[in-house]
Amino acid sequence: MVDKRSTVEEMVGELRPGMTVGFGGWGSRRKPMAVVRAIVRAGIGDLTVVSYGGPDVGLLCAAGLVRKIVFGFVTLDSIALDPHFRAARQAGRLEAMEIDEGMLYLGLSAAGQRVPFLPTRAGLGSDVLRVNPGLRTVRSPYEDGEELVAMPALDLDVAFVHMNRADRHGNGQVLGPDPFFDDLYLGAARRRFVTAEKVVEPGRLTDEGPMQSIVVTRLLTDGVAEAPRGAHFTSCPPDYGRDEAFQSRYAKSAADKEAWTAFRHDFLDVDEEGYLAAVAAGAAGPAAGR
């Protein structure tokens, strides 16, 4: 069987400016943050980002790498709004396709099923149709004749998800309570990458969780990379919770240019090892968090 082991740098090396990129996770939960940090380091911009948005969106916005965001929300959960995302939108720097969360689910599903759209009631009557003039409705060909929103397929160039465990063939496992939509992101993409807290021997994923927790099969994966704490500072239960102290620091880095420059210098202009060391050093200081 194919050994799909790779590195975060190699995965991100496939990105090109202008691509459409999807990130798994939800809000500030199990986001592929090691990948996001690597994209910031590589400075690959002009991206269209599709996300149940959290700090993945905020960090890339702060780094000026996002042209367009496809989203239903952007939140840090314990902090309701991501200040970097807000700043980008309020400065008029960010194109947006703002849709209902369920429409996002259907758009990813449609892409994975290779159909041009899936019908839904969601969006009807709302300003989602006003701000997305490209969205069309479709009339049921059956007797009911209902006119529904035709949510278009959200085809991705590349998708990244972060899992608790994976094996080298590209099977991925979520040990936390919610798999979110990660398999749909992979299914919607041309190139599909999984990072994991730990890459284990094939066949050993069931050592730590039931078979149903293996939510991604190798049919959906092109590359696998071990990335310990690869979701930090978002939550990745049961391996770790959200680093609230660090998230707060991240949010405060939106205060002004100096704050962002300092944050970037300390945590982003360093490699992943340097990042984790800087986080550990920060946690040992007086502003210690969990």
């Binding site: 989203f71 849709i99 209902d100 969360e101 969006g123």
Partner: peptide, 8 residues
């Protein structure tokens, strides 16, 4: 925060 699931 965004429209979230309100339209649906």
């Amino acid at each position: 925060i965004g429209v979230r699931g309100a339209p649906g």
